[in-house]
Design a protein around this nucleic acid. Structure first.
Lengths: 203, 203
DNA sequence: ACCTGAACACCGTTCAAGT
DNA sequence: ACCTGAACACCGTTCAAGT
């Protein structure tokens, strides 16, 4: 009785509760609003209470980013039903769309964030899809780097491009979707895979 | 006499002097060291003197970024001597190498920076090379977006990837150069161009 | 173990004042 | 026109103290 009471009243905070509250804050009021004080107010605690669960602000940001990855759930489509290309297209398009919808997170991406557990899970799924498709280890790393780099850069660039053009240029600019770039990469990856299969038959 | 005296003693500051001092500060002491106070100390003025030439901190950052673009001079190779692919490869490799060498600038890239005059000059050169090569307007925009997005994303990712792997994984990880990704994109662009030329011949 | 309260050094930015 | 000096609200973070 006494124990269950303490279990309820204590431990109001946890790393994941903090991360999700932080994500909500960024969602609602943007990048700059994620401060220790604002987050503490949202959680009805003192700013210092947060430091019991995250080591510092950059640790907080990393866990918010990982909460975001978990939230958008980019890999919710079945692997088995699609070939590698379609699966990757769906996955990266999901990521891209999610990121574009949340430009407040962009500033964090440049800060060499550490991949959290959720991001790592997505990453390992991508790697395994590529390996299963027939790419060797180095090709898999290169492909993942190309795709991920392109997806992130593209979502950042689209925003930057648009802001940089003068008023008169803005109606000229048709924002590029991520599709054409993915087409570029997939075309090249397919060729790479064909070459792999040929040398396999020969040897 | 009096006028020339005033011209020398006054106007110690200018937008470009401030931008270059800011760039030096970031170069030497990293991202976090670019504060109004530190910059003012470097220039031997009061923090407030800077506000006469830049409107606020984000304006300062944009001008520092543009000073960086000017500094690295990515387009110093001749257009005429190379075909479009080689010229673009050289340009984007230059940018990538410069950015990798200055991770302190990465955080700014996520902040949807406004392209300054120097960046705009580079951008227009790239666009013109693609148009001259035979791409239509939409293809040119798509290609530029692919290449630039990939280049930026790749330099950010490489750093993030490396930091995220555990110690035991780190020796497994071979950092992907930008080359393979550019290969991917160029392969696809070449196919696109071939298709363009075919339809031209037909019509 | 978990949270609070007071304090610290620093940040960007404002305003009125000097020359 | 260009720069200074003092002040303001806010930031992340520390430390010792409470329960």
């Amino acid at each position: 009785m006494k124990n269950s009471f303490r279990r309820i009243t204590k431990r109001k905070l946890s790393r994941s509760i903090i991360a999700n509250a932080g994500l909500e804050l960024v969602k609602d009021k943007g990048f700059d609003s994620l401060t220790m004080k604002a987050l503490a107010d949202k959680l009805n605690v003192t700013p210092m209470a947060i430091y019991r669960h995250v080591s510092d602000k950059s640790d907080l940001i990393n866990s918010v980013l990982d909460a975001f990855v978990c939230d958008v759930d980019v890999c919710n489509h079945e692997i088995s039903n699609l070939d590698w290309k379609e699966w990757l297209r769906a996955t990266y398009t999901n990521m891209y769309t999610s990121l574009k919808g949340m430009p407040s997170l962009h500033p964090y991406l440049g800060n060499a964030p550490r991949f959290g557990p959720n991001a790592m899970e997505v990453l390992s799924k991508i790697l395994s899809v590529l390996r299963t498709a027939g790419f060797n280890q180095q090709q898999t790393i290169n492909a993942t780097s190309s795709l991920t780099g392109f997806m992130i850069g593209c979502s950042i660039m689209d925003t930057a491009f648009h802001q940089s053009l003068s008023k008169s240029q803005q109606n000229l600019y048709i924002p590029s979707t991520i599709d054409s770039g993915l087409d570029h990469i997939f075309t090249a990856l397919s060729l790479e895979l064909e070459a792999n299969n040929k040398t396999k038959v020969v040897s």
